[in-house]
Structures are given as structure tokens and as C-alpha cells.
């Protein structure tokens, strides 16, 4: 291991029960999060990003469970724990203080019966970070201000339903950041805030990563956000990672046809077509027996092999990996297999 990693997700599998049948929604995912690094996770809606994130702090919904793999937490380079093996009590403790998560749906994760300021203060109290109520209140107000909530002293006393969508998201972010976690997992955390506040929040996350060596896993569909703060990007499709690369490499040299499709579907100001470009076809239903590439039905340069065998993750140089039969060799690999 050459990099100083904080978290290593290894071969993670998550299944959900549907009509008594276990359907895999996360299939063999590997993600490395370096200490102080920001890792982006992008991918089509419903591909399993939130499930992956929720496996880390073990808050998968009922009906869903991790069925394989490990999630290694490296406290320090020599000390490693598998989060999936921790006792419930131990993981809850870790999640409050060292791992913080910003959920995709703020309204369902805020307590509707409690003023938002008190909810954030509760975090400091439960984890015994700050006992003095006056001091902790001040800390909360400061944090609310830092995430761009106007008039934070007044807003401390607001109920969740009194806030706008974007304000609720910011309350969630404040709640996650207030105990200075070692790992921040942000699941679509800025989807409802405008560009100026988004920039402010991204700066805050970046500062905390640089100054206090926080690491972050940023789940987003916004390629602008990815290019602005991530060091490394993972692209997920139908439950598995199909491409990973340093951020600049991914944007300048996308290899997987899905990644290329993603980058070309972004609407751009100034040159909008009548209709936007999309990847043809539908996201397929996960069927267990299928042995070919998950993307072959929607891919333009599919060859026979793509229908026969599932591609392995292969290195393309520059720390860039891709799961595709044709991306590295062109559409007609012929007999090239095994000769590299």
C-alpha cells in the first residue's frame, strides 16, 4: 500500500429483498479514500451510490444488507478495523464523532419536532464534545453562519418545516461538520442550493480537508462540483464501479462509454440543441444470470465479447482504470486477449 488511506471499501456487495428474492444493488465495489483527500462518486440515478455510502456507517434501510466485502478503517497506518464487523454500539459511536454523513433527503433525516439549532447542539452533547450549553450554542450559530444561513441567531430557533429546501440542506451540512469528523460523506448535499452558496460550502469542505486532514466522499451528479473539489473520481453504473481516475484525467480522457455519455449530456449555456444528447436505451433491470457487460445494451461500439463476458477493471495508465472490453483496444480487439 503506497498511499496513506483512511478508508478502503473492498469488494462491497449490498442486496435488497424484493418479493423474497435478494437483488444485488451494489456489486463488488472498491473505493479508496486517502487521508485528507476528496473522492467523488458519480453515476446514474439508482445505481447504488447512496447504498454504498450508507454501508459505511451501517445505516442501510431494512430489507437491505451488506452481503459481502469489507470496509476497512485505518485509524493510523498500522491500526485497522473492519467497520462491517464492529458491534452496533461501537459503530454508532464512531459515526457520531469520526464519520459524519449528509443525507440526500434532509426533510426525512431532520427531526420535525425539534428546533434546528437544538438538533445540531444535540450532536455536541451526545458525543460529549462540548458540555457548556452557552458555548455549544455559540458554536452552532457560528457553524450555521459558515454554511451560509442568513441571520443564524434567529434561524437557530426555526423548525425544519420553516426552512427552504436549500436551508435544510445547509443545516444537515452544519450538523455533519460541527464535530470535525475524520470522514465526511456528502450525498447530493448541495443539490438545492444556488451556485454562490454551493461555492461557499465546497470551499468550507475543501478547507477542512486541507487544514484538519478531513477526508470526504462526495456523491453528486453535478460534474461542475466534481471538477471543482474532487481529487479522484469513481464512476458507478448498475451497482459496480466502471471507471476511476484522477479528476483531470477523467475529464480530459474519459474512457468508458457511460462516462463519455455522462459528459456529453450536460446542458451548456450558449449552445443548446433542440433536444439534449442522451445515452440511448434504458437502465436495465438487474438480472443475476447475465454474464456480459452491464452496459452492452446501450453501448454503441459493442462487440460480441461484450455480450459474452463481463469485463474486468483494467489499468489504462496515469492511475486510470476502466471496466470495458473495447475502451483500451478499440472496437475490434480480435485475438488480443491475453497478449498484453
Amino acid at each position: 500500500m503506497n498511499k496513506d488511506l483512511l478508508l478502503e471499501i473492498k469488494d462491497l456487495t449490498v442486496s435488497v429483498k424484493r418479493k423474497k428474492e435478494a437483488v444485488p444493488v451494489v456489486r463488488g465495489v472498491d473505493i479508496d479514500i486517502p487521508r485528507g483527500g476528496i473522492v467523488g462518486l458519480v453515476g446514474e440515478s439508482g445505481c447504488g451510490k447512496s447504498m454504498t455510502a450508507k454501508s459505511v456507517n451501517r445505516i442501510l434501510p431494512p430489507f437491505a444488507e451488506t452481503t459481502g466485502g469489507s470496509i476497512l478503517w485505518h485509524d493510523s497506518p498500522g491500526e485497522t478495523t473492519d467497520l462491517l464487523k464492529l458491534k452496533e454500539k461501537e459503530i454508532r459511536k464512531k459515526c457520531g464523532t469520526e464519520i459524519a454523513m449528509v443525507f440526500q433527503e434532509p426533510m426525512t433525516s431532520l427531526n420535525p419536532m425539534m428546533r434546528v439549532g437544538d438538533q445540531i447542539r444535540e450532536v455536541l452533547k451526545i458525543h460529549k464534545i462540548e458540555k457548556d450549553p452557552a458555548v455549544s450554542k455559540e458554536r452552532v450559530v457560528k457553524m450555521l453562519g459558515a454554511v451560509g444561513i442568513p441571520q443564524p441567531e434567529l434561524r437557530y430557533n426555526s423548525w425544519p418545516h420553516e426552512l427552504s429546501g436549500g436551508m435544510r440542506q445547509r443545516v444537515m451540512i452544519a450538523m455533519a461538520m460541527i464535530c470535525s469528523p475524520k470522514l465526511l460523506i456528502a450525498d447530493e448535499a448541495t443539490t438545492a442550493v444556488d451556485v454562490t452558496i454551493e461555492a461557499q460550502i465546497l470551499d468550507l469542505i475543501r478547507d477542512m480537508c486541507h487544514a484538519s486532514h478531513m477526508s470526504a466522499l462526495v456523491i453528486t451528479h453535478n460534474m461542475g462540483v466534481v471538477s471543482a473539489i474532487c481529487d479522484h473520481v469513481y464512476v458507478m453504473y448498475l451497482g459496480s464501479i466502471v471507471e476511476k481516475a484522477p479528476v483531470r484525467e477523467l475529464f480530459t480522457n474519459p474512457l468508458h462509454p457511460y462516462t463519455r455519455g455522462l459528459l456529453s449530456s450536460i446542458p451548456r449555456i450558449g449552445n443548446n440543441p433542440e433536444y439534449l444528447e442522451t445515452i440511448p436505451g434504458n437502465i436495465p433491470v438487474v438480472r443475476k444470470p447475465f454474464s456480459g457487460c452491464d452496459f452492452c445494451m446501450r453501448c454503441s461500439d459493442d462487440v460480441r465479447k461484450c455480450f459474452m463476458e463481463s469485463p474486468e477493471m483494467r489499468e489504462a495508465g496515469n492511475d486510470h482504470y476502466v471496466r470495458c472490453h473495447t475502451a483500451l483496444t478499440g472496437p475490434d480487439p480480435g485475438e488480443s486477449k491475453g497478449t498484453e
Partner: peptide
């Protein structure tokens, strides 16, 4: 706002 750009493009279309 919470859709990946690809599905987003389909919905916008």
C-alpha cells in the same frame, strides 16, 4: 436537481 446528467437530459427532453 438530484438526477444524474443523463437521466436529467431525458427528463428535460
Amino acid at each position: 436537481s438530484a438526477l444524474d446528467v443523463c437521466v436529467q437530459a431525458q427528463i428535460l427532453n
